[in-house]
């Protein structure tokens, strides 16, 4: 569990277009395996996390980082994650924001309503399901550095340090709110 350090909404960087362009030809399967593993691990460590989804536990969420050339389809029950080039039709809800804002939201470092007010977060589809997901995640106090690094066995410590350093650069690492 991490101690949340609030980041000021509206100030987080986006992935430069050239970097996004360079990522376009990359195969999606390795990323899907890593992120799918992270989701499974989060689910195992926080079995009650998705209780807050209530009747929306089986909803399919499409998550699109607006500055990356791929997107995610996430299901809570059973926990499942797919990495796709384009979001398919038939999803219950779609959530779009910059990649860093999405990461910050996952860790509860930014406020979802504030991102909506500043138009940095776009929601379409079942708004109730999205709110339930947001509240479930916010209560879980996820620490992605811990979740991701745990997949790398003996390399976990350097992976964790690298993740925390990147996060500090992108989101801010101090526990002091930057209101």
């Amino acid at each position: 569990m991490n101690d949340p350090s609030a980041a000021s909404p509206g100030q987080l960087p986006t992935i430069p277009p050239l970097v996004a362009l360079a990522m376009r030809p990359l195969p999606l399967l390795p990323l899907q395996l890593v992120l799918g593993g992270v989701l499974q691990r989060i689910h195992r460590r926080n079995p009650a996390l998705f209780d807050r989804l209530g009747p929306h536990a089986r909803a399919r969420f499409g998550i699109r980082p607006i500055d990356l050339p791929f997107a995610f389809v996430v299901e809570a029950k059973p926990p499942r994650l797919s990495v796709v080039r384009d979001l398919p039709s038939g999803l219950d809800a779609r959530i779009s924001a910059s990649f860093v804002n999405l990461l910050a939201l996952l860790e509860g470092r930014v406020d979802g309503d504030a991102l909506m007010f500043s138009r940095e977060l776009v929601i379409e589809g079942d708004v109730e399901a999205v709110l339930a997901l947001r509240n479930a995640i916010d209560d879980a106090q996820l620490d992605l550095a811990t979740e991701v690094s745990s997949l790398f066995g003996p390399l976990g410590a350097p992976v964790r340090r690298a993740f925390e350093a990147a996060r500090g650069q992108l989101i801010g690492s101090s526990g002091q709110a930057s209101s």
Partner: peptide, 14 residues
């Protein structure tokens, strides 16, 4: 009460 932890943390500290 409908806001996230980031809001609570920042506004309360303020």
């Amino acid at each position: 009460r409908q806001r996230g932890r980031a809001y609570v943390e920042s506004v309360v500290r303020h």
